[in-house]
Simulated scan of single mutants.
Amino acid sequence: MPPSSEAPESPPAVMFLNAADPSGAAGLSADQAVCAAVGCHALPVTTSIWVCDTAEVFDIVEIDADSVVEQARAVLQDVELAAWKVGFLGNVEVVSAVAELLADYAQLPLVTYVGNLQALEESQVEEYIKAMQELVLPQTRVLCGNVTALSQFLFPEVEREQPPTPDVLMQQAQSMGVQYLLVSGVLVPENHVENVLLSPRRQLLRERFEMFDAGFSGAGDTLSAAVASLLGTGAKLDQAVHEALEFLDQSLDFAYRPGMGNLVPDRFFWAQTGPEGEGDSISPVGLQ
């Protein structure tokens, strides 16, 4: 049957510029799953391809910068965008091309995620970080990452025994044009971690969770994708981050191991049946 002329209103569309992850753990795989789970429509743009498993990235297949931008612009001419997220862009040329694209839609909330850059060669890491700092961070509303990754990204030339405090990270991020910073994985006593949302003036949110004694692939992409998607629904920043953190915590609670590597967050934990198998489902964060 043809679609009804009175079809439901489309959900908010969120564009993700990230690497394709064939293991299904991180990158665009995580972005699309999270976006769907919180009720948005994902627009995935492939910026590079990881050769990886659920434990590590072995190699990166680069994609031409023009091809990345052509993917995005073709969709942007057709679908109205509510928000977007930048993940791993692959190389300096793609960073530059994506930055020009972002500048054409400066009114939209941009979430930038800083992950592990270990698959890049040392010389590439330095150039990549510099390009991101100069071209993408000034356009970023929310910069996300765990405290270790952010420390290496914001202070690449400084070696520390301990990572800087979230406030110090925020000061550095602000100097590069970032409006807000979400720092995850800050170790605190009694086997807990804290996640802190900051503005240049103050801490806006601080939430503590029990530490998981396990390794995960895709946790950071899960959190940042949730923030971007929830901002796309029109949620205020502090509420979006609160719900995204709850979403991540429950995704990790229900994590599974599809291979021999790390655990993968279950972004559809809310669709699981109750403990008695009676079909009682858990409501997804943000959709109660």
Rank of each mutant, 00 (worst) to 15 (best):
A82S: 08
G274E: 14
G218E: 09
S251F: 04
L248Y: 04
A106E: 07
P166G: 06
Y180E: 06
F247E: 01
L101Q: 09
G145D: 03
N116H: 12
P258V: 02
V285D: 08
T54K: 09
A235Y: 08
G115H: 06
V45I: 13
V95P: 03
L197I: 11
L154S: 03
E276C: 05
A30H: 03
L28W: 02
P109R: 10
G220L: 12
Q152W: 03
L17M: 13
A97Y: 14
V241S: 07
D64F: 00
A72S: 07
N191Q: 15
M132L: 10
A33V: 04
Q272G: 00
T148A: 11
Q171S: 09
L154T: 00
A20Q: 11
F247K: 00
F155A: 13
T47R: 11
V183E: 14
A219W: 03
E190T: 08
V227T: 12
G27T: 06
S224H: 05
V168F: 02
V188C: 04
E134Y: 00
P109D: 11
V38E: 02
V57K: 05
P12Q: 09
A33S: 08
R73H: 05
P138E: 08
G145H: 06
E159K: 10
E122H: 10
A30M: 01
T140W: 04
P22S: 10
Q124L: 01
D21R: 15
Q77L: 10
A72C: 13
A37R: 05
L154W: 02
V183G: 06
M211T: 14
A83W: 15
A225T: 12
D167I: 06
E161Q: 12
E122R: 13
S96E: 14
F155Q: 09
S251C: 05
L135Y: 03
V147K: 08
L237F: 05
G234I: 10
P189M: 15
A271E: 14
Q139I: 07
Q162P: 02
V92Y: 01
Q152A: 08
P3A: 09
F216C: 07
Q77G: 13
M260P: 00
Q250V: 06
P164A: 13
D104L: 12
P258F: 03
N18P: 01
S48R: 05
M132P: 01
Q152H: 11
E246C: 07
P164S: 11
A42D: 10
V136G: 08
L89V: 10
L117V: 11
S23C: 14
P11Y: 14
G145E: 02
L28S: 01
E243M: 15
R208C: 10
